[in-house]
Design a protein around this nucleic acid. Structure first.
Lengths: 161, 161
DNA sequence: TATTGTTATACTCTATAACTATA
DNA sequence: TATAGTTATAGAGTATAACAATA
């Protein structure tokens, strides 16, 4: 807390007379959900700008990065891991296939499944993209020390793990 | 970090043979953006369930809570504070007006602006909703100590402030 | 000329139902 | 019967352009 100002007996007065552009957000800012969303929004804005160069959206990057470290993963696995629904992954995968970033190979022993693999072009792109993401993350969390950043990530994971 | 396992020389082997439902997400989980989004998603799911009782979405709650502590705030101020675009607030405000939760009064000295105020019904609803949100937040962050929760919020704010 | 609130509209994201082919 | 991938489609969320009234 920046200054335990005794709650200032919240003025029963209306806002208009002074009308500062800053509203009292103390209640919302006491919520994990609100703060997590705002922080994500900030980071994701920078993310979107930097990734536009590669023609990648956030979910595209997630998929490519997962495939880089999990070659042969299936759509179903990607959906389960990233918490997205199968129908919404189809066009995404199909587009990256058309771009020559990934390729689909029939699964060795399950005729229904399709293994997804990065092409050399995909490998190369994801390698550059991952480097940019690391840079961008460092900028976005520039106000945090390395130790604070680790703590932040650890605590966030405690929420959703 | 749970165990600095020397990166295990990431198996160049494909996934299919074993095919565990858990993919290697270490790269993504090292990113603030990814973790903030996942954590928010978790909290917001619980939030949506609990707030459905009151017929409120997250943004509705934010607006009502802001009006509770900033009576007479204008649409423009709500938009600036919550980072939403004016056209997208219109139907939202209008719906809450129809529900009798808020009322619009002409601004005392700016004929363009409209001051927004909670009705008694709105006050009552937001009071109950805020109590439920506090409960829900406690549940969602049950794996954190009170001190960790404070730290988490403080660090998230450092990202977006 | 700039700002508040508004309409209309488009685009993206997310969700549901139903189909096919394999298991 | 259940699962992987797919199609079509609906709904929610977010974005831009343009306008009237007021400053």
């Amino acid at each position: 807390m920046p200054a335990p100002r005794k709650k200032a007996a919240v003025p029963a007065v209306s806002v208009p007379p002074s009308r500062p552009d800053r509203l009292d957000t103390r209640v919302l800012e006491a919520l994990v959900g609100y703060n997590a969303r705002r922080a994500w929004l900030t980071v994701s804005t920078v993310f979107a700008e930097r990734m536009a160069v590669y023609g990648l959206k956030q979910v595209d990057f997630s998929v490519l990065s997962l495939l880089a470290h999990n070659p042969g993963a299936t759509s179903r696995q990607l959906c389960a891991t990233l918490d997205i629904l199968p129908p919404n992954l189809v066009s995404l995968i199909s587009a990256m296939d058309s771009r020559g970033l990934i390729e689909r190979r029939p699964h060795p022993y399950d005729g229904r499944a399709i293994g997804l693999y990065l092409t050399p072009a995909g490998e190369s792109l994801v390698h550059e993209a991952e480097r940019t993401v690391v840079e961008l993350e460092a900028e976005a969390s520039a106000k945090l020390t390395a130790r604070e950043r680790e703590t932040l990530i650890r605590l966030l994971q405690k929420i959703y793990h």
